[in-house]
Amino acid sequence: MNVLTIQNLSKSFGKQKIIDHLSMSVPAGSIFGFIGKNGAGKTTTMKMVLGLLQPDNGEIHVCNEKVCFGQTNTNQFIGYLPDVPEFYNYMTPTQYLELCGKVIGLPKREIDQRGQNLLSLVGLSGAGKQIGGFSRGMKQRLGIAQALFTNPKLLICDEPTSALDPVGRKEILDILRKISSSTTVLFSTHILSDVERICDHAAFLNEGKIAVSGTLAEIKALHGHDSLLIEFSDEQELSIFKQQRTIKPLISGSEENAREIILHSQNIKKIQQSLFSVFCETGIYPVKMEIMEPSLESLFLEVIK
C-alpha cells in the first residue's frame, strides 16, 4: 500500500517549468529518499503535497485521500519538517508542543505525555529556555518533535540535514531511523551518503521528472556496469599487465592512477576469469583487487548528465 501517490504533477513559475508530469509513489513503512540537486523542485513538490502550493496539473493522494490546495484534510495524516523550521521564539519547547496539541484538539494529559516522550526522543527534555535562543540543530530536533506530535502516517522532511554539522546530521538521521518503525518517512536531500545510510527507497528528481525510482538495490542494479579495481606493487607490473593480449581489449574506458587500474564491464565475472588466467601466466599478482559497488553518487551524476 502506498501512503503517498503523485500522478502527472506539473508546476511552473512564470515561464519556468519546475515540475513536469511527475509521478511517484511512497510505499507505507519505507524511508524514502527524494533526491535532486539544488533547485530541482523537491521543496515545490513537497509544498504541493502539503496543499501549500497549487499544482498546474496532476493529482496527489495521501492515504487514499485527494490533496486539495489551501485548506486540506490530508494534512491530518502528515507531519512536516521544513528545511529551516521556525517557531514562536518567545515560547519554550514544551509551550510550543502544547500549542500543537491544542491545535489538534488533544486532551491536556495526552499533550503532556506526548510532549515529554517526543522531547526525550529528540534529546530536548532538559531544554527549558525560549526557542529564540536555540541553535540550528536544536531547532531541527524540535522540528522533528512537532512534526511527530500528531502521530502522522507520513513524515515529510525537507532537507533536514543539509545545514547541520556532522554531529547534528548523525543525530537527525538516527532519530529518523528510530521513528521509521511507526511512520513512513519521505526525506528530500542532495546529500547522497544520508540516503545510503538510512533510506530503503529513493527517487531521483531531474528536470522536473522522476528519472529513477525504486528500492536502493533496484536503483543500484540499474547502474549500467560494475567496476573492478586492481592495485599492483609497482608501476612496472601494471605496465606488463596491460600489455597482455587478453587484457588489451578490456582496458578501453578504464581509469588509471599510478599503480592502480579500474576496469569497467557489464559482466564483471567474465573479466575476473580472464584476469586470473593472466595472473597465472605472467606470475604477476596484484596486492589488492576489489569489486567497486555502484554508488548512488555515480548513478546520480549519470542521471543528471
Binding site: 502539503l50 489551501g70 494534512n75 512536516y80 529551516v84 523550521p85 517557531f87 491545535v103 522540528g143 500528531t150
Partner: peptide, 13 residues
C-alpha cells in the same frame, strides 16, 4: 514561515 507548521498540522485556516 511559522504558520506553515500550524496549518500543516491541520489547523483550519
Amino acid at each position: 514561515g511559522t504558520l506553515v507548521l500550524m496549518v500543516t498540522k491541520g489547523l483550519p485556516r
